Amino acid sequence: MKVTDRSQAAYEAAALNQKKHEGSRETKAEKAQEKEAGVVKDQLIKGEPETKATYEKPAPVRDEQSIQRLMDESNRAHQQLRELVIRMLERQGMSADRLKQDGEPVNIDNEARAELEAMLGPDGEYGVEKTSDRIVDFAIALSGGDKEKAELLRDAIIQGFKEAEKALGGLPEISQKTYDRVMEKFDAWVNSEN
């Protein structure tokens, strides 16, 4: 049995060797034909510098297009809120200018309350999700996606909420929820692979 195994192995080795030999003859013939036809294949010529197969990571660049889009969205939402207040005042026979002068108290009617609740609700422009998305998207766009600026961005976001708290004399519940979601989303971005 050992003899047969050796014979079989020798036969297979000889067949493989013959195929290699035939292949190299075909390769030589093909090369000669290509040379005559003027075909040049990729080859490294001594003295030519090798090009790297890797690349340098580009420096982060502010995403001006996203910044503009976010500013436009924010301005639209702000304008919507202003219009809500103006309509509410008009229904009460008041104007923003007169309100400034007279300092009259304003009653929030049911129509304005419903509109405001919709704006602050889960799907509203000033709801927790959309507001936190805008804040995080804006921070990422400003940094150009550079996570090395994460602490600077985080500090700026915290400072913004502190300023709002100071201006309002405390943060309403929705603002605190928004702050929490901003930090969750921001941390998710910082800890993501890309």
Rank of each mutant, 00 (worst) to 15 (best):
D133S: 13
K41S: 08
Q33L: 13
Y179K: 11
Y179H: 10
P58D: 12
S7R: 15
D97L: 11
N191W: 09
E151N: 12
E64F: 13
R69V: 08
E64Y: 07
R98L: 11
L89R: 03
Y126R: 08
D137S: 14
K2H: 10
K57W: 10
P122W: 10
R113G: 00
M71Y: 11
A118I: 10
P122S: 12
K162Q: 13
A29T: 10
V190C: 06
L81F: 04
L70V: 05
E184H: 06
V106W: 03
A77E: 09
D187C: 01
G38E: 01
M71H: 12
R62M: 07
L116F: 15
L89E: 06
K2P: 05
K20S: 06
G160M: 02
Q43N: 10
E56P: 08
L152G: 11
K52Y: 13
R82S: 05
N107Q: 12
D180L: 14
N191R: 14
E50F: 15
V182D: 01
K2F: 15
A10M: 09
K185S: 06
R154N: 07
E64R: 10
Q18G: 04
Q8Y: 12
K162R: 12
E83Y: 01
D180I: 10
L120Q: 11
N110V: 07
R91G: 07
K162N: 14
K166V: 09
M71C: 09
E56D: 15
K147D: 02
K149F: 05
S175Q: 04
I86N: 13
I86L: 11
G121M: 02
G93M: 01
G47M: 01
A53T: 15
P60Y: 01
K177D: 08
M183D: 05
E56Q: 15
E104Y: 08
A15P: 00
